[in-house]
């Protein structure tokens, strides 16, 4: 957190470039590569495992302000969101709204 702004800008720029790399390669290979192939299936698995791991980490071991919220509240918010998502025929905004409302209500009364 105490590094200079220049260093942080380098991380931001590096992240942008490293993300663009996928877009670039995708465009370059759009004639030749089979998106259903094994290599992509593996890359997809890696990125999904990583994202699920990141969410779980954000909920169970948060950094920043969410530390002050009890674990059960964080978990309840996510679970309510997921349950509503499946009940409300996969409407993302309805599900997120419900999870958020429950989370804020629980935090306010805690």
């Amino acid at each position: 957190m105490f590094e200079s702004q220049t260093e942080l800008w380098i991380v931001v720029a590096g992240s942008i470039a490293a993300t663009y790399l996928w877009r670039f390669l995708g465009t370059l290979f759009s004639y030749r590569i089979d998106p259903q192939g094994r290599l992509f299936q593996w890359i997809t698995c890696v990125s999904f495992a990583m994202l699920a791991g990141l969410i779980a980490r954000m909920v169970f071991i948060p950094v920043g302000p969410l530390i002050e919220v009890d674990l059960w509240i964080r978990i309840t918010g996510i679970i309510v969101g997921l349950i509503v998502f499946f009940l409300a025929r996969r409407q993302v905004l309805v599900a997120v709204g419900a999870g958020l409302a429950v989370f804020i209500a629980l935090v306010s009364n805690a």
Partner: peptide
């Protein structure tokens, strides 16, 4: 942030993605 993610990922249908997420959830923390 985690809420949006959780809901968006829950919407994926592909089996390899679902298996990957189930393994990733305990491994991440």
């Amino acid at each position: 942030n985690p809420l949006f993610f959780a809901v968006l990922l829950a919407g994926s249908h592909a089996r390899p993605a679902i298996i990957a997420m189930l393994i990733g959830i305990p491994l991440g923390p």
